[in-house]
């Protein structure tokens, strides 16, 4: 018994040191920075400015708004896709095709979109051939959301697919045998039984979407500002680490709220 606890403690060392060095210390530093000013005095002024200035609060709402849209669109695509995938014969292959793009660096994919969406890019060439003329596809809100959805899609689809896949096929058969329409099976069986996958999908998409910053510059042409881009600017350009940390703390808080509302309720089994 004693040996067992000792072994446990021993194996916990990597995890605990990781936690300390890369989670606890950085968050403590963020909190410290957010509560001090350039002179190093303790103050709540940064948070006061966040709430009162006419920049940060609207920016925060804006970020949440974009993140919600991105999450909603990825869900609308992912749920039916995951359902269909789980019915297919070679599902591992189809799933692989969706996972494959995540092996490519995000920055590379974003640059690829710069080319695709440009005036001489493939999409505009297609438009022109079909007689719609060419359009400015880069540097607007739609292109930003489109590329963000593309990048986040696999992270919504995978957890939903996994939880749909776990559903016992006999339950679905039973529902059909008992005369339920496919729509009812979907809404009353598949959806509730895959709710945990949906929740983790939402977590995996909504939270990163709140702080997208590279896309706002490359695809949004800096005409889309999120809390993430504000943090980047404060740390790199304006070098106001205190305000940057304050925004980061607000973001962590927003993430905690999201986690709370999408937590797994009621243990199965």
């Amino acid at each position: 018994m004693k040996d067992n606890t000792r072994a446990k403690a021993f194996f916990a060392i990597p995890y605990i040191s990781w936690l300390a060095v890369f989670v606890i210390v950085p968050i403590a530093l963020l909190v410290y920075q957010s509560l001090t000013n350039a002179q190093g005095n303790l103050t709540l002024a940064n948070f006061h400015e966040f709430i009162t200035s006419d920049v940060y609060l609207p920016m925060a709402f804006n970020s949440v708004f974009y993140a919600l849209i991105i999450t909603a669109i990825t869900f609308v695509i992912s749920f039916p896709a995951a359902y269909v995938l789980s019915r297919l014969k070679h599902r591992q292959l189809w799933l692989m095709l969706i996972i494959l793009p995540t092996w490519i660096n995000v920055l590379l994919k974003t640059y690829a979109f710069l080319g695709l969406l440009s005036k001489s890019g493939l999409i505009n060439q297609l438009f022109a051939t079909l007689g719609f003329g060419t359009h400015n596809l880069l540097f607007n809100h739609v292109s930003f959301i489109f590329v963000a959805v593309y990048l986040e899609l696999p992270f919504m689809l995978l957890p939903i697919y996994n939880s749909i896949n776990e559903i016992d096929p006999d339950i679905l058969k039973a529902s059909r045998d008992l005369g339920a329409k496919p729509v009812n099976t979907l809404t009353q069986l598949v959806f509730p039984l895959s709710i945990n996958g949906i929740k983790s999908g939402i977590q995996a998409v909504f939270i990163p979407s709140l702080s997208l910053f590279m896309l706002t510059t490359l695809i949004g042409g800096n005409k889309v500002m999120t809390l993430g881009s504000a943090i980047e600017l404060h740390f790199i350009v304006t070098q106001n680490w205190h305000m940057g940390s304050t925004i980061a703390i607000v973001l962590i808080f927003a993430m905690a709220v999201t986690m709370y509302f999408t937590r797994e309720r009621g243990k199965r089994k």
Binding site: S53, V55, P58, M59, N62, H141, N222, K223, V224, M225, A230, L233, H234, V237, T238, Q239, N240
Partner: peptide
């Protein structure tokens, strides 16, 4: 720097 950040944000929100 503050003006820069605020102006950039304002323009994005106005858009």
């Amino acid at each position: 720097n503050e003006v820069y950040l605020e102006a950039k944000t304002k323009v994005s929100l106005d858009g």
